[in-house]
Design a binder for these strands. Structure first.
Lengths: 175, 175
DNA sequence: CGATATGTAGTCAAATTTGAATATAATAAT
DNA sequence: ATTATTATATTCAAATTTGACTACATATCG
């Protein structure tokens, strides 16, 4: 559960309720590289509370609104955060690309249809790359070093992926 | 569950029992890019059987050995395989790199320790790259086009990752 | 103006994934 | 010769993840 680092990290900045974390993830564009169902976030908060890493600070009741439960990080949580930070930095990228599994069995597929499917993929990667590059330009100096660095990494990753997929098409699927 | 494609794909080649699939994954070096606990494989077989994509062909009993349950793919399963193949080809790479989450909160970490952690990561990526490149050389022509293509993609990916991580260190973590 | 979509805040059952446990045989290491 | 590890084949409880659902408020649109 790498949502742990996300939650602890955002709580390092101050008390928050789960939904607020959700909003921050969107606002900072983290939703590009952190995919999860909303339910998981509440689960992460629960687990972190049970293990004493975070604690309830306040429950805000507004009439005709669901209650907001504000959480804050504990000293134990801050320690754990430091450790998690190092652990995550050590984890190498996973090579789990859905295309890899597909390529393994490409010989059983219809080349025409596979080519169309790959084209869809290429278009999507192109779109995403464009999106990230426009963020990079527009927000220029307003981005933190961390955010800028992640953008660079993601864009590089997508470029490499594009080149590779185009090569597959040029090689006509090895036929 | 992308194990579905794996199971169906390997059953396209003939009847197999779950453990045999496990062995094939290792033998073909697919374990580099397909990570899962063994239990998941049995679950995938169960689900595929329930939905009529595969069926039990035979149960082999050897004294003092667990039974082997041999499965074969059904016509319905072959159809589903074709569809899954296209679906997986369309799925763009996920940008879910553990380092991204860590970088987001790098400002709260100890630069010295983070640098050490990243160095560990770099070493591991270097090792893996070497491993894949040696496979690429040694098996040269004996690899199928698909396997060769996956290797190229994975190696490119790792190179891009390396360049990026080294840049982070050179930039001294933005400090 | 009423219908429809979007934002707020969270719950929960069901689906999936993990990882430890089982039990036996063969091989390797000291 | 005895201990330790690896290989064979699977099961299952527990941990995690998903995604549908609730319920009300505000904004949007023809």
């Amino acid at each position: 559960m790498s949502l742990k680092l996300l939650v602890l990290g955002l709580l390092m900045e101050g008390e928050k309720h789960p939904y607020e974390v959700q909003q921050q993830v969107k606002a900072r564009g983290m939703d590009c590289y952190m995919k999860y169902a909303k339910g998981s976030l509440y689960y992460a908060f629960d687990q972190l509370e049970k293990s004493g890493m975070i604690e309830v600070k306040e429950v805000i009741r507004e009439t005709s609104r669901p209650d907001k439960t504000m959480y804050g990080i504990t000293p134990k949580g801050e320690e754990h955060f430091q450790q998690l930070l190092l652990e995550e930095l050590q984890k190498p990228t996973q090579l789990t690309n859905p295309i890899y599994a597909a390529l393994t069995f490409a010989s059983y597929g219809d080349p025409q249809k596979m080519d169309e499917a790959l084209e869809v993929n290429i278009q999507e990667v192109r779109r995403l790359t464009g999106l990230l590059e426009s963020i990079q330009e527009q927000k220029r100096e307003r981005l933190s070093w961390g955010a800028r660095t992640i953008l660079i990494g993601a864009i590089e990753h997508l470029h490499a992926e594009m080149r590779w997929m185009e090569r597959i098409r040029e090689e006509a699927w090895g036929r």
